[in-house]
């Protein structure tokens, strides 16, 4: 298939939603600002005009109750999409998500289901600081009854989003602000990307580099840096955080015998720990070299010089890989930094 049709990540989510709203009249989109002129980076930009105010509407600032609204509508067979401008705001919704959305199907022995999508943008960029940049995926991945996905490419964004809408369970769909402008091949027709499948983005023989959401972009750059010293990294985008595709990761590790997991989040009790533990459980007697990386275990600071220390970047990832593979000489290598356009180009004020 020729990969000529290019869309941005944001456009891919818009197109997925549009196609599903056209296909299924029970799909509706709601949340703060979804019908404003910006339409959340264009991802919801004209749905209120196309489908009317019953199927795309702004809400009061009542995050927990508005989550409950979606849960109730989903019990009645509708397919709500609740949009949050920052993932941090999901902390206001934990009660409805965990005590209600994740429970109805189980506690009723299958009588009710909650086919709902919760869109959450990780807000990193341009000084978003302690409460506008958090990545809380592991909190949701912890809970049975919820599914958690975090696609990185525009192709996966569209396919996973359609899959999320059609899934009969509550799905936390994690986006990253720095990905919205990224372009990639997206077919025009409707398609789904199944959950529970990681994607091998680049093949390699020397190390398995597993990453999530924006850290996938950093990992791909790290791969280029590692190439200059002859290390060939296989880069895997985890895509689905609950369930996790242990099989794909494990298969890669069997080939490379080295595993580095870079989560776009904190390490403690996080996705990186989970991936390593799951691989270990599958290979208890033949465990590879491994390392993990994530945000520094501090609150995200606002000022740029400190923020730069907070996040892993391609250079720190490449150095970590090199130290893992070449214990004696790994510390002295300082690769030429790569340009991170999506980080540098982003400006506020939003």
């Amino acid at each position: 298939m020729p990969e000529t049709r290019q869309l941005s990540y944001g456009e891919a989510i818009y197109e997925a939603t549009l196609q599903e709203m056209e296909r299924d009249p029970s799909v509706f989109v709601y949340g703060l600002g979804v019908d404003d002129p910006k339409g959340h980076y264009g991802t919801t930009k004209d749905f209120h005009e196309r489908f009317g105010p019953d199927r795309c509407f702004d809400t009061p600032l009542s995050e927990d109750t508005m989550t409950g609204l979606g849960v109730g509508a989903a019990l009645m067979g509708m397919r709500p999409i609740h949009v949050h401008q920052r993932m941090d705001f999901l902390l206001l919704c934990m009660n409805q998500l965990i005590n209600m959305a994740a429970k109805y199907h189980y506690v009723s022995a299958g009588q009710w289901s909650v086919p709902m999508v919760v869109r959450a943008s990780i807000g990193r960029s341009w000084g978003q600081g302690p409460q506008h940049s958090q990545a809380l995926q592991s909190m949701f991945a912890h809970v049975p009854g919820l599914k958690v996905v975090a696609p990185t490419t525009p192709y996966d964004a569209k396919g996973c989003f359609i899959e999320a809408i059609r899934d009969n369970n509550p799905v936390i769909f994690i986006e990253h602000r720095l990905l919205y402008a990224n372009k990639g091949h997206v077919p025009e027709e409707s398609y789904t990307v199944p959950f529970g499948k990681a994607r091998v983005l680049k093949e390699g023989d020397d190390v398995t580099l597993v990453a999530t959401t924006h850290m996938v972009v950093e990992a791909l750059r790290a791969r280029e840096q590692l190439k200059t010293i002859g290390i060939d990294a296989e880069v895997i985008d985890l895509v689905s955080l609950s369930p996790i595709d242990t099989e794909t990761v494990s298969k890669s590790v069997n080939k490379t015998d080295a595993l580095v997991v870079v989560d776009n989040g904190w390490e403690n009790c996080g996705i990186s720990a989970e991936v390593i533990a799951k691989v270990a459980e599958l290979n208890p007697t033949n465990f590879p070299k491994f390392a993990r990386m994530g945000f520094a275990p501090v609150t995200c600071p606002t000022t740029k010089v400190l923020e730069n220390e907070f996040y892993p970047n391609s250079t720190s990832i490449a150095q970590k890989v090199n130290r893992l593979l070449n214990e004696d000489q790994g510390n002295s290598w300082n690769p030429v930094p790569m340009k991170a356009t999506e980080i540098e180009a982003f400006k506020g004020p939003f």
Binding site: D54, G68, L69, G72, M76, G77, M78, N95, N99, M100
Partner: peptide
């Protein structure tokens, strides 16, 4: 719908159910 043991948590679901009935 099967009830909740967390006080008041059914109420947001009720507005969702009523929203769907109206819709």
């Amino acid at each position: 719908p099967h009830t909740s043991a967390i006080v008041a948590t059914g109420m947001p679901n009720a507005i969702g159910v009523a929203f769907a009935q109206k819709f």
